[in-house]
Design a protein around this nucleic acid. Structure first.
Lengths: 218, 218
DNA sequence: CGCATCCTCCAATGTTTCATGGAATAGTGT
DNA sequence: ACACTATTCCATGAAACATTGGAGGATGCG
């Protein structure tokens, strides 16, 4: 009863998924894929990887069952195998942030000084329906196109400075991005408040919005 | 903005937690620790590891922040750093089972033929309050002592054959164990039905019971 | 204090993984 | 068929990891 060989085989099989989560580059790829499907080349440049290196990491993720592929002409688009994969990534991130001091320190360093005010999703939804604020999606345009918070407008961070005039000067902006560990909304709020615009950021982002199955506009 | 060095440092820090989940032995240790705290020696024998090897794995888990220690005399007891760690382990397990064909096959091989009937938690709680069934915790006695389903009695699997007479012959037994991937309840139900006793198993176990914050008896 | 227990640290070994560049493959367009 | 693009496969050296035995540190007991 309970053959130790089978038991080891089971845990080793589970570990293959764990191993796939055991590389910063692969986690970065998952982070990108959580926003929508992407070609290999796009992922490589976005994550700062060599093409073959990126492909190898994607193979690892695919063998673990975490991502799936779709062929479109000569391009191959990778995507997360399912919403549970995004949830796993988010939980790994949250556990690391809560339990691992180094991870928490790295997060705080990356996100920069805690000088930006944040609102939670309930407050955003309440104030959005009240017409009190304007939600701005500061992620790259294609991520906005792959799904965004209903009512939000898209101004990618790298266009925000030049397009700041598109925003009404007297309505508060709520900027959001990929997720709680994404730097874009922090930068956006700093830029906006630096220009004297009232701006806060959403405490998390699309990753958590999708995870909790809130409505999404396409 | 968004220093790539800091970004890499963040993902590498998250990856340290992922790496900790990238070994079958470490997952087995987490599986055991999810049932309650344990000494190093106990963990080593339970997982079939050398003492130093076990200690090394525990150090890895501790550095990742997934486990914590408590000294009691010469013994050192390890425990999960928090309930979120158990949730992370459970989700990894579930994602692997759902997305990775090898993991699913390994699980099915380990748990044996699907010849045992399962009930879910709602049904168990309903029938327990109705006095319709008797819940039997077939985990080792110390895991029962560390917390169990209210109303359940403890008959460890390795004592079940000799203590079968303690069970009323005409009341259905619901056996449960560590979790959905634990073999004990499967074996218990096979043993009981093999003796002509009416028995089913709980579809999951204490891991999921704790995760969903259901009441626990001590 | 001396000794036993329990565990961690250290060093050495073999194994696995990672990054990279070149070759091979699949699909597109001419 | 041919060139071209996008990606995977393969081989290689460098780095990281797992396992094991023995030394060492902390605690408890007589």
């Amino acid at each position: 009863m309970g053959d130790p060989t089978n038991k080891a085989a089971l845990f080793d099989a589970l570990a293959r998924v764990g191993k796939a989560l055991g590389s910063g580059k692969r986690l970065e790829l998952l982070d990108l894929l959580a926003q929508g499907e992407r070609s290999v080349e796009h992922l490589a440049t976005a994550a700062g990887l060599g093409l073959t290196t990126c492909s190898a990491h994607l193979q690892t993720l695919r063998q673990a069952g975490l991502v799936a592929t779709r062929r479109d002409g000569t391009k191959i688009h990778y995507r997360l195998a399912g919403p549970d994969v995004a949830a796993l990534y988010a939980l790994l991130r949250d556990v690391a942030g809560a339990r691992n001091a180094e991870a928490a320190a790295a997060r705080d360093t990356y996100l920069g000084p805690a000088d930006t005010e944040a609102v939670d999703r309930d407050e955003l939804r309440r104030r959005l329906t009240a017409g009190d604020v304007i939600a701005v999606d500061v992620r790259p345009a294609e991520e906005y196109a792959a799904g965004h918070i209903p009512g939000a407008i898209s101004i990618p961070l790298d266009q925000l400075a030049e397009r700041i005039t598109e925003l009404p000067a007297d309505v508060e902006v709520v900027a959001y991005c990929r997720g709680a560990y994404c730097v874009l909304s922090h930068e956006a709020v700093r830029l906006l408040t630096g220009h004297g615009r009232p701006a806060v950021r959403l405490a998390d982002g699309m990753l958590e919005w999708r995870r909790d199955q809130l409505p999404i506009a396409a």
